[in-house]
Design a binder for these strands. Structure first.
Length: 801
RNA sequence: GCGGGCGUGGCGGAAUGGCAGACGCGCUGGUCUUAGGAGCCAGUACCAUUGGUGUAAGGGUUCAAGUCCCUUCGCCCGCACCA
């Protein structure tokens, strides 16, 4: 037998698959389809991370298995290639981002090919190709036409280093998610997408998809729907002050009000407010705090009472003070609240500090000590017509009262904000809009798409924060498509999330010229059957792409309400020391090195074996040797090959292995699938023989995990054909059971003895046999049997006194 | 603070409420070898003498709990005053 030369073997089969287009998606639409999707990578200059293959190998295994089970499988790959790091790299090194992107893609592609992943490379897409972003722009135009894309002057998150607007989601602890620089607030007119219009559907339709639970929960929390009431309070200044509350039942307990420092009524009341200087000074201090400081400050509440204007509680006409405090946000609800210190912990803290009345209106807590916020127990008190009701009933009754007396109405609010959809950068999709002095914002005619990025040498952001595109006159100056007069092109570009919001649609028909993909292909392939990706994309990419899909559904482009039928998530791979891999920690593992030293099959196997797929796991350079050793042992089975058919005494373990591997792949329990194959070959080695058919089944089961060695062995052993063409083995349900089983005999739940009995024997026989057992006899002596519990093929528990 | 998850040998991790520690790493001993950082074989939770104890700690449900319920502690992730 020749040595297991993984380098030759892997090179040989990778070339074979490439030359023969082995994994090209079939056009045979009569077959059942299976669309497997993994998040396409951002091709950074750093190259592939060992985390990438974890996700890609997992669905590669599923895809390969499904092909062998007769499905028409689409398993594509592409590049999410617009984005800041490439642009910053380009600026620093004076290389055009297009060239940087091209080089990075070719490196990534080679690295992926070295892993033997069965992607259909004929369907490769890149978000930076103009034939691709033509359709990104097209989707934007459809949103613009439906009023979902709009411009708005607003305070935006401004990264001082990137010189760029960030979405709320991209700001982490007041710092830019990418470069960690300070983020400040800046007023700017920005393109926005009205994702809030889809908030309800983005929550409610989660019921129709098979996502792992944490993903559903995170999406729901992010959207943050709450049901409550909008209530009008009169003020002594005459103006009405609107507040939002989720606890209309506690209105009788409202002892003061709070408005946000940015609230416009402050300016209106300038002349009524006796301490206006103090209020404006407070507003000034607050505005100077960065978002980060503001959240750091949340230990101690601050605020100032407005002297000269009071609010009037609509339910009892009592005058109550109004405060200004930064614990109320202008961006949520109405920017004003009624404060019920007895039943809200923030209001409680504030009231204690400013010595404001605390009126208990729900019994059951101890308001001397803390706010009572529990809604499930307690009855209303001190609340006139609500007294004695539960919180739920009181809410309903108060809502009716408010509506009847025209003091308020039911109102649903969301934490979700509209999506800031513009970046003042070069390396992104140009927004296809023209600003005309007469017609305003005008859509670029669809036949002029794509609006290509002009090829320039200077892509540094401008000092005033405008996009570098604004410096290019021939790009900027155009005629208005409507009236023909001189107009200017929009120079902002789209955020990185744009291209990744619909890439799974393009894979269905990547070369389509007259639509983002043809109806026929979309109808056949949608929805994605299984989408795996990281938890870090749950609130950004996943939400955005669901939003775009729903919009495309509404305008008739796609026929499913949801893009992804199933969403799973892989855990992170940590460094050897259990910390996140990073250059600064010096714990980065380069997949190329592992492929070189151990081979692609070994790294694939190891990443699937290292632990629970959904949990993070530290890299171990010694554990990986065990996986390599296993492949060596599989290879060496050739030494003990003897005989043809499956030996009768191996029927059971073979069928058990088939069942285990088959089921475990579907449940993403790749680690135990592999361990069952390890256990099988250990058993085979103990018998010193493997037969041709036993070996063949093992090779087929192993092939999705370690495809190169499997192809090679299949060929070398002369089974005929290729392993990837074989049918996935079925197990025989009758043969996954042993003839005899070992049954545990317990006395009062403690194991006292074990019996080997024929499978499926009945309770009476087991009890009879147990009572003949010497150890059990001794245990039962002078004891009274109270109860006998028999679990078939497992145990007998005798309870005695 | 809120939401989610987790806590099992020296390590990664297995266990439809039914034999805790599968499988792998590491370690120990043996074997083959000029050699072994290769291979193969055996052993490997803890305490002790038959036997007993063990799944973060404590309590509960059950004939039976790593698994279900309650309390506490610790770690990880997400969100940060969302009224």
């Amino acid at each position: 037998m020749r040595k297991y030369d993984f380098k030759d073997i892997e090179k040989k089969w990778q070339k074979f698959w490439d030359d023969n287009n082995t994994f090209a998606t079939s056009k045979d639409y009569s077959k059942p389809k299976f669309y497997a999707l993994v998040e396409f990578p951002y091709p950074s200059a750093k190259g592939l991370h060992v985390g990438h293959p974890r996700s890609y190998t997992a669905l590669d295994i599923v895809a390969r298995k499904r092909r062998m089970q007769g499905y028409n499988v689409l398993y594509p790959m592409g590049w999410d290639a617009f984005g800041l790091p490439t642009e910053n790299f380009a600026i620093k090194n004076h290389i055009h981002p297009e060239i940087v992107t091209r080089d990075n893609i070719s490196r990534f592609k080679q690295q992926l090919k070295n892993l033997g992943l069965s992607f259909d490379w004929n369907r490769e897409v890149s978000t930076t190709d103009s034939s691709y972003y033509k359709w990104t722009q097209w989707i934007f135009l459809q949103m613009f036409k439906k009023g979902l894309a709009y411009k708005k002057e607003m305070a935006v998150n401004w990264c001082t280093s990137c010189k760029c607007v960030l979405a709320n989601e991209e700001v982490v602890n007041g710092k830019c998610e990418r470069c960690k620089s300070d983020v400040i607030r800046k007023n700017k007119s920005q393109w926005m997408l009205k994702i809030t219009e889809y908030a309800d559907r983005l929550i409610d339709d989660l019921d129709s998809v098979n996502y792992i639970n944490p993903v559903k929960i995170q999406q729901k929390n992010w959207i943050g729907r709450s049901y409550g009431a909008q209530v009008e309070f009169n003020t002594t200044a005459g103006d009405k002050l609107e507040i939002y509350t989720t606890r209309p039942d506690t209105l009788f307990g409202a002892t003061y009000m709070v408005i946000s420092p940015e609230h416009p009524l402050i300016d209106k009341w300038k002349d009524n407010i006796e301490n206006i200087d103090e209020i404006l000074a407070y507003r000034e201090t607050v505005s100077k705090k960065s978002e980060f400081e503001r959240s750091e400050m949340n230990k101690e509440k601050t605020g100032v009472r407005i002297v000269g204007v009071n609010g009037i509680n609509p339910v009892n006409d009592k005058e109550i003070p109004i405060y200004v405090s930064d614990y109320v946000l202008m961006s949520y609800g109405t920017g004003a609240i009624m404060a019920v210190p007895a039943h809200d912990s923030r209001d409680y803290e504030f009231a204690k500090k400013f010595d404001i009345d605390i009126v208990e209106v729900v019994s059951g807590g101890n308001i001397e000590k803390e706010a009572f916020t529990d809604c499930s127990s307690g009855k209303l008190i001190n609340s006139e017509f609500l007294n004695g009701l539960t919180v739920e009933d009181a809410k309903m009754k108060m809502l009716k009262w408010l509506e009847k007396n025209k003091k308020g109405k039911a109102q649903t609010n969301y934490k979700l904000r509209d999506w800031v959809f513009a970046r003042q950068r070069y390396w992104g999709e140009p927004i296809p809009i023209i600003h005309c002095p007469k017609c305003g914002e005008v859509a670029v005619p669809e036949n002029e798409l794509p609006i290509k990025l002009p090829n320039v040498s200077d892509f540094e952001p401008t000092e005033n924060g405008e996009s570098p595109l604004s410096k290019i006159d021939e790009f900027v100056n155009v005629k208005c498509p409507k009236c023909g007069c001189d107009a200017k092109r929009e120079t902002d570009t789209m955020p990185q999330w744009a291209g990744s919001s619909w890439y799974y649609l393009r894979y269905c028909d990547p070369n389509c010229n007259d639509a983002l993909a043809s109806q026929k292909e979309l109808n056949y392939w949608l929805p994605v059957d299984w989408y795996n990706g990281g938890m870090e994309h749950t609130t950004l990419h996943l939400l955005y792409s669901r939003f775009w899909h729903k919009f495309l559904y509404d305008i008739g482009v796609v026929s499913t309400k949801e893009p992804y039928a199933k969403r799973t998530s892989h855990g992170m791979i940590l460094g050897q020391n259990g910390e996140k891999m990073s250059k600064s920690r010096g714990n980065v593992v380069n997949p190329d090195d592992i492929v070189n030293e151990y081979g692609a099959d070994t790294i694939r196997l190891y990443e699937m074996f290292m632990g629970d797929f959904e949990k993070s796991a530290p890299w171990s350079s010694s554990s990986i040797k065990g996986c390599r050793r296993f492949l060596d042992r599989v290879w060496s089975l050739q030494d003990i090959l003897q005989g043809d058919s499956i030996r009768p005494e191996f029927e059971v373990s073979l069928n058990k292995m088939i069942k285990k591997v088959t089921d475990d792949i579907e449940n993403m329990k790749f680690n135990t699938a592999i361990s069952s194959m390890m256990a099988f070959i250990n058993e085979v080695y103990d018998s010193k023989v493997v037969t041709k058919e036993e070996f063949r089944i093992l090779i087929i089961l192993l092939s999705p995990f370690a495809p190169h060695i499997a192809e090679e062995l299949y060929e070398v052993l002369g089974y005929g054909g290729y392993v990837h063409e074989q049918d996935w083995p079925n197990y025989d349900a009758d043969k996954v059971k042993d003839d005899a089983v070992e049954i545990v005999i317990q006395i009062c739940g403690k194991i006292k003895s074990k019996l080997t009995v024929p499978v499926d024997i009945n309770q009476d026989e087991v009890i009879k046999l147990a009572k003949e057992d010497e150890k059990i006899k001794a245990e039962l002596k002078e004891k009274k049997i109270i109860k006998e519990i028999y679990v078939k093929n497992r145990l007998l528990n005798i309870v005695v006194k």
